[in-house]
Design a protein around this nucleic acid. Structure first.
Lengths: 160, 160
DNA sequence: CAGAATTAAATGCATTTGCAAATATCTTCG
DNA sequence: CGAAGATATTTGCAAATGCATTTAATTCTG
């Protein structure tokens, strides 16, 4: 294990050579950090955290997913989601229902109140989103999203 | 498009119409979530968390930044970074030094041990990074990074 | 030059998070 | 059938996080 570890690193470019500003994961973390923090004030007003907000967002599009599926979409641990759902449920924003065919599993649904809360938040998400893409032409935007889709297909573990 | 009046909720496209798979922030969160979690095992072996790892990464490129500057680069609260530095300092991976010209401020430096730890981690970062971009041609990669740079310029608050 | 306002970093504290284990249910296959 | 293994979700617990406050030092203003 000794020589192998040393040899393994030899021909890699170093981060300093690539440059932080050209390293895609760095740029993506910076951008998403700001997107998320721009929404934090609005979320706080509505009593939401990031996973809770993402759950509402996904549920506004996908009706009645299993909890484990929802966890993939919102990029959170199942335990984190489980507790986020406890809160959303207590606030009447979502409803959990045991799956008809498998009583271990739970499906999650947005309530009318939950949809109303998301509708309050959505304009702010659009605003942050628009701001990110300001001055970037449509064809460049489309190419960018196309590349993102390829990247997700490359790295995702789940077929969703 | 109809007219160019101020935004009202009625005018906004809905997330379901755009589609999750075409909504860039969703895709970016999914991708970065997997990039970060792919590194988590390796980080855990080295006693690192995400902010600690990012601090080492940035310090491998930028020597002696102020703590508040470093916080911007690693996309973390100053308090989170402060405690991360406590740990990195205790483990001998970084060194904090009061700024010569402003004794409120602290500059952070990577130690040799810190650089060695980052050098252990870096090949795994490159591997995750390469996996993300697998099958994506060079010109598309460059265009993608170019768009990211424009986006960061659009949304950043700090001039770094 | 003094006092107020600002800035840098650290700390208190409540909440959130993630891992691991527990619980409950389903599936497989002898 | 029924025990062993797999799967879905929840829960215990320690660690990490974020907000607000504190401490310390600098800059601004009259």
């Amino acid at each position: 294990m000794t020589d192998d570890d040393h040899d393994h690193q030899e021909d890699l470019p170093r981060l300093g050579e690539i440059g932080l500003a050209n390293y895609a994961p760095y740029l993506m973390n910076r951008i998403m950090g700001r997107y998320n923090s721009a929404l934090r004030d609005e979320m706080a007003k509505l009593g939401l955290t990031t996973p809770k907000m993402r759950a509402l967002a996904v549920l506004s599009v996908i009706d009645g997913p299993l909890i484990r599926e929802l966890a993939v979409y919102i990029v959170a641990e199942q335990s984190t989601l489980s507790r986020a759902l406890d809160q959303l449920d207590a606030d009447g924003l979502v409803r959990r229902e045991t799956d008809a065919g498998d009583s271990r599993a739970t499906r999650v649904f947005l309530t009318d109140a939950g949809r109303a809360v998301f509708d309050t938040l959505w304009p702010h998400m659009v605003e942050s989103f628009s701001r990110m893409f300001r001055g970037i032409p449509d064809d460049e935007r489309r190419a960018f999203v196309g590349t993102l889709q390829k990247m997700l297909a490359n790295i995702r573990k789940h077929e969703i």
